[in-house]
């Protein structure tokens, strides 16, 4: 576990996430969103979880970011409407971050260093998905189909 790599990836990811949540221009925010997911995927690779890291890259950078860019282009009429600043929102967000940090720091036994592990192959995850988790997998497939049909129905032009 490389400390320098951890620090670099953490700064990279958090800066990109902050840019995605705060930038005024939607296109720049969407780009920072994709960059934040590159950082998250490298966290997953650093933790030895290649399968979910690759799934994150394929699904988020390959599909979700492109979908968001398409939506931005489809809904491009209102730009630059800036109205005030919501101070109560930032107070609530800071309070929630404080509560999270407090509970993390208060927990015992978190100061453990990563033990040495054997590499986890995709074959093992696939076997778990096909045996222990086969019913959840089927349900997720059904959910994806329903979401696909639902999205199509929602954006279909109404016939008059």
């Amino acid at each position: 576990m490389n400390s320098a790599a951890f620090v670099v990836i953490a700064i990279f990811t958090l800066a990109a996430a902050l840019a995605a949540a705060t930038l005024r221009k939607l296109m720049h925010a969407a780009l920072s969103f994709a960059v934040a997911f590159v950082g998250l995927a490298s966290f997953f690779f650093l933790l030895g979880a290649e399968f979910v890291g690759l799934a994150l890259v394929f699904i988020y950078i390959g599909a979700v970011a492109v979908l968001i860019v398409f939506t931005i282009l489809l809904t491009r009429r209102d730009v630059g409407k800036d109205r005030g600043f919501n101070w109560s929102g930032i107070v609530i967000a800071l309070a929630m971050f404080g509560a999270l940090t407090w509970s993390i720091l208060k927990t015992q036994s978190l100061a453990i260093v990563a033990p040495h592990i054997r590499a986890l192959t995709v074959k093992q995850i696939g076997a778990a998905l096909m045996t222990t988790y086969v019913w959840p997998l089927q349900c997720v497939g059904l959910l994806l189909t329903a979401a696909l049909i639902g999205a199509l129905v929602l954006v279909m032009e109404e016939k008059r």
Partner: peptide, 24 residues
Amino acid sequence: MITLGDYLIVSGILFAIGFAGVML
């Protein structure tokens, strides 16, 4: 060395950034 707590802190900061984005 990097411990589990460090990852949880980074995850907490990321969550707070997302939460602030939703609120603001």
